[in-house]
Amino acid sequence: MLKKRLVLTFPQAVVEEPITYRLIKDYDLVVNILRARISREEEGRLIIEISGEKEALDKGLNYLKKIGVAVQPLAKDVRWLEDRCTHCTVCVPLCPTEAIVVDRERMEISFDKDRCIVCGACIPACPYKAVEILF
């Protein structure tokens, strides 16, 4: 079993395509939708956690590419700008998945991309604009 967190970007033409249904039914993949949004330009963005056998996963991702959905690993869409971060920790209690953790000895934070679900709660909380989300 493989598990991936992906950001899917849909052009307007495929916004109405039931792609989650297809991934589950036709490719036997487990799809967990973490976040979904359709922009004013009618471009769709979906953040999913997807798991299945390697072959099925490859085929499913191929299907997405074929119909014009751009697939990116989730981590690419979240950037912690360490040089702007002061390690103040004000963002920490707002993170719902403990993706921002504090080393209580050093009183410094670190960002665990794998735990991040790109909810965006840290963005307005950061006084130094040290987190960027391209979503």
């Binding site: 002061t86 390690h87 103040c88 920790t89 004000v90 963002c91 920490v92 209690p93 707002l94 050093r106 009183m107 410094e108 006084p127």
Partner: peptide, 9 residues
Amino acid sequence: PTGSLSSYA
């Protein structure tokens, strides 16, 4: 849960 505005680091 607590957060700080002052950076101890």
